[in-house]
Design a protein around this nucleic acid. Structure first.
Lengths: 340, 340
DNA sequence: CTGTTAGCGCTTTCAT
DNA sequence: ATGAAAGCGCTAACAG
């Protein structure tokens, strides 16, 4: 190990050139594996690179080239299985192309989203993949104009030309409601996220439509839309289960709500049917297993990457939207019948 | 939205200066909030910045300054709750200092670790936080010499001067074994990860020592060390539970093994005590709840960040190692008594 | 095949 | 308080 006490500047291409006795540009050629360098010089340069432990300075390269080889990903939370899958897929693709991945977390806060995005675009990522929350992403417009490819996932962007990969929210909710109705449920509650969130909105609208389709009344005490918190869900569950005409089944509009609902339900003895929109990582290990509308995070991620790679060469093409189908995974919690 | 069809270069500081009728340097001063700019010029410059939608080019800045304001994080998987917590904590810290976070995933493959790290160091991150796997990280030495702060988490680095944040693996295993012995178990199996992994090694050694301390024989058919796979665990569980003198309790050396074991156990009717080293995100929702040796990912992350910030100003100080305590979280699976 | 020159967009240094 | 010049480390464009 060459670690020693003294601070040491990193060697530059110039120093490599000096040591190898060649011109700067020859080193550049070797480093970038450009053709037209004789084997002898190549060897000399490589030796010098090894001797000096030279590694190219990407900042300089980026500045000169105009391309940074960087993909920015802006999501709510890194631990959410959906976004974790997205991150994995993008990371894998990035590495395969020699790019790196910057990750920013918004925690569903529009101001943070803006801050993070502005911090990122200063670094001129080639592409930005995000799950937008804010009303508008128009602050990205100059960068989109300058060629940055933006692809959104889970929700569409506003104020910029971007591609979007969305889940079939309405279809998923339809399946959930149909499934519960088929089990004999008529009083089906819907607990979703804050209506300001695009997916939350699409899903609750679909829920109401599906109930109407089945000619079932929606008890407004059975519809709750808020950011899920442990305390909030406790209160919500009381309203849903302890009132007159209590719900016999619950649809959770997102997996964070599902987690809190499961925790809240753990303290009760009534068996309530439950269908979750979006799966939990270990949904199969729960008893009963979690019946869930499953979004294929992987398919969505791949789709996003594909749209991005297609957009990269022609950044000014019109935005496309792809809807990815979802499917109902039946594991037990959604098959609990209503009490007689 | 200013999005239009034509590709558009991003404005540079020079153009802002021209538009504001000032020198380049004055714009630089305003952008960097340096003192000694008259209010009038400041206003003019800010107006020009707004008119042009100017955002500074971080690549150029980095090149000039030598500091990149970038933190690199290299971990196995983004979805693992332990690493997700780490990522969250580092991201939060990074944003608070105006840095950004690059994330690389190794999937526990030493070659990928090396590739990812080399890709990253080319971008000259100010600090690198990693959970190392490979035998040695000496390929980072030139960059450590040049002032990059390296802090490892979960496992120590080799071949470079770095700080390390490690869990008290032996203490955790001691607690697990003691707990199971107290429930009356004598045939306790240990299923861990590949012994090449530092934590796996520390933990299995501690398991043997703890068993010895209790004067319990270790049945070698009850000790399995391998990367957890669904098929592998099936075979392992047969060996552990279907042989003569079957184990009555299992300690899982890491949470991925735990997941697979839980899946494998789901198909069996015997009730086996189970203690997991490292928690699952929804360990409290399982029935029985998962009894686990809990590492405080958050404490470890904070510690890593602290070590990093301390190392940043004096990158050549000797490496420190901090052991973070773990604790046993009792939720049911570890309290199943042995069959009579 | 190899080298020279210019300059990416910014900050640093030094004048004014 | 403001500005001009130099140059960070590299690659693009050209010349030999």
């Amino acid at each position: 190990m060459s670690t020693n006490g003294a601070a040491q500047r990193r060697p530059t291409m110039k120093e490599v050139a000096a040591r190898a006795g060649v011109a700067l540009k020859t080193v550049s050629r070797v480093v970038n594996e450009e053709p037209n360098v004789s084997p002898e010089l190549t060897a000399k340069v490589q030796q010098a690179i090894r001797d000096l432990n030279y590694t190219p300075n990407e900042s300089a390269r980026m500045l000169r080239r105009g391309r940074t080889g960087t993909i920015a990903v802006v999501i709510r939370d890194i631990g959410d299985p959906f976004f974790a899958s997205l991150g994995r897929a993008v990371e894998m693709w990035a590495r395969s192309t020699g790019s790196v991945l910057m990750i920013g977390l918004t925690d569903e806060d529009p101001d943070r989203e803006r801050d993070v995005c502005l911090e990122f675009v200063a670094r001129r990522p080639d592409a930005l993949i995000m799950a937008p929350i804010g009303e508008t992403q128009d602050y990205l417009a100059p960068h989109v104009d300058a060629g940055m490819a933006v692809v959104t996932i889970d929700r569409p962007a506003h104020g910029i030309e971007a591609d979007a990969v969305l889940a079939d929210n309405a279809g998923g909710i339809d399946q959930a409601v149909d499934h519960l109705v088929k089990q004999g449920h008529r009083r089906i509650a819907y607990l979703g996220d804050d209506e300001r969130i695009f997916t939350a909105r699409e899903r609750v609208v679909a829920y109401r439509a599906a109930m109407r389709r089945h000619r079932l009344d929606v008890d407004e005490d059975h519809v709750h839309l808020a950011e899920p918190t442990t305390e909030g869900i406790g209160i919500t569950l009381s309203a849903v289960l302890d009132g007159p005409g209590p719900a016999t089944a619950i649809i959770c509009g997102n997996n964070r709500t599902t987690v809190e609902v499961l925790r809240g339900l753990a303290g009760r003895r009534d068996e309530i049917a439950l269908v979750s929109f979006d799966d939990l990582e270990l949904g199969d290990l729960l008893r009963p297993g979690l019946t869930a509308v499953t979004q294929s995070a992987d398919v969505m991620a791949r789709t996003a990457i594909q749209l991005m790679t297609e957009r990269l060469p022609e950044p000014h093409r019109p935005g496309r939207t792809v809807r990815v189908p979802v499917r109902l995974t039946i594991r037990g919690s959604g098959e609990i019948p209503p009490p007689p």
